[in-house]
């Protein structure tokens, strides 16, 4: 919700808010983890490194869903299908026992996911509200069962990717994705890149219209924009980002299976977005980290972790209407009485 640049006539540089500084600090804590992780968590460092990488991938997926749900007002329960499709695309487009070439497989993956999203979007965008939820759920499950029953993709067992994709220029290995720390940084860069890309998108004329559609599509139509066209483009962009996350996830674990696509997964990511704070993008990242870390911590302590986690989520959603992002923004807000309006009053200061 925090516009990167104020829309006022003044283009003067504004000091970043305390909230923005906090987010930067959190990003730094994450970015330097490979340097201090060993000292802080001896013995568990490798596992944590892998876990954090996986969470960052989920954060990318959550941001891509936030574009649809939080900005465009399209509540999709089939978003994980594009994540899974991205993973399967890497498995199927790449050679079986050699490293896939990133320069060819990644564009092919994004193209395939984009095409699928274009078809699914064109068929579902016209519906709204509960019908959109149902139709995306149905498409998601359709993909799930197609890959669940497909022999070429290993059926319900899924399929392996034995070697991580190679990033080469003229046969020269640029980065070694096989190295866990390198892969961590590649995913970190992808996550930050996704965030910046979406921020830029939201500040563009397209982003303004999409946010308007999320609030009141009929009003936007009355002004002269066809909401369906803008929603479809957003749907395809969101799906392609989800596909990118799926590609990275498949590369990380060297394994894809249909559960990547299941509606449980779509639902979990939706919880991350809502928990973090809808429509803020950084909320999606915070939500992904919060949910996954809570999950890991509670699971390690009790076998009834689902019950405890579920209860916690309910309490958080009920007490934090603007999610974790809203809470942090309020806590870092200079004056208590500013808490209510939060970001809105920034333009005046």
């Amino acid at each position: 919700m925090t516009p990167a640049a104020p829309l006022t006539a003044s283009t003067a540089w504004q000091a970043p808010s305390r909230f923005a500084l906090l987010l930067l600090a959190l990003a730094a804590v994450l970015a330097f983890y490979p340097l201090y992780g060993e000292a802080l968590f001896p013995g568990q460092h490798d596992y944590f490194l892998q876990k954090l990488t996986a969470i960052m991938i989920l954060a990318m997926l959550a941001m891509s869903l936030d574009l649809l749900v939080g900005i465009g007002g399209m509540v999709s329960l089939g978003h994980a299908a594009f994540f899974g499709l991205g993973g399967y695309a890497l498995a199927l487009f790449g050679p079986e026992y050699e490293a896939a070439n990133l320069w060819t497989t990644l564009p092919m993956t994004l193209g395939a996911v984009g095409l699928a999203a274009l078809v699914i979007g064109a068929l579902s965008i016209r519906t709204g509200g509960i019908y959109f939820i149902m139709i995306t759920l149905a498409f998601g499950q359709m993909f799930y069962y197609v890959f669940n029953d497909a022999d070429f993709a290993g059926g319900s067992d899924g399929t392996y990717i034995y070697v991580r994709p190679a990033v080469e220029v003229f046969g020269l290995k640029l980065v070694d994705l096989g190295d866990a720390v390198t892969f961590f940084y590649v995913v970190f860069a992808a996550m930050m890149g996704t965030y910046v890309f979406l921020r830029v998108l939201l500040a563009s004329p397209f982003g303004k219209v999409l946010r308007g559609i999320g609030i009141n599509p009929q009003r936007v139509r009355g002004v002269g924009y066809n909401p369906d066209a803008y929603k479809l483009v957003a749907f395809v962009i969101g799906a392609m980002l989800a596909g990118l996350a799926g590609y990275l996830s498949a590369a990380q674990f060297g394994f894809v299976n249909p559960s990547m696509m299941s509606w449980h997964h779509s639902g979990t990511v939706l919880v991350m977005v809502i928990l973090g704070g809808l429509g803020t993008l950084h909320g999606a990242i915070l939500g992904a980290f919060a949910l996954e870390i809570l999950h890991a911590v509670i699971e390690a302590r009790t076998e009834h972790w689902l019950l405890v986690l579920g209860g916690l989520i309910i309490v958080m959603v009920l007490t934090l209407p603007k999610g974790i992002a809203g809470l942090l923004e309020r806590l870092t807000s200079p004056r208590a009485n500013r808490a209510r309006t939060g970001h809105e009053d920034r333009g005046e200061s």
Binding site: V200, L201, A203, S204, P205, F206, K208, Y230
Partner: peptide, 8 residues
Amino acid sequence: AMRFLRPA
């Protein structure tokens, strides 16, 4: 408004 990169 199919303009995606330049700030509005």
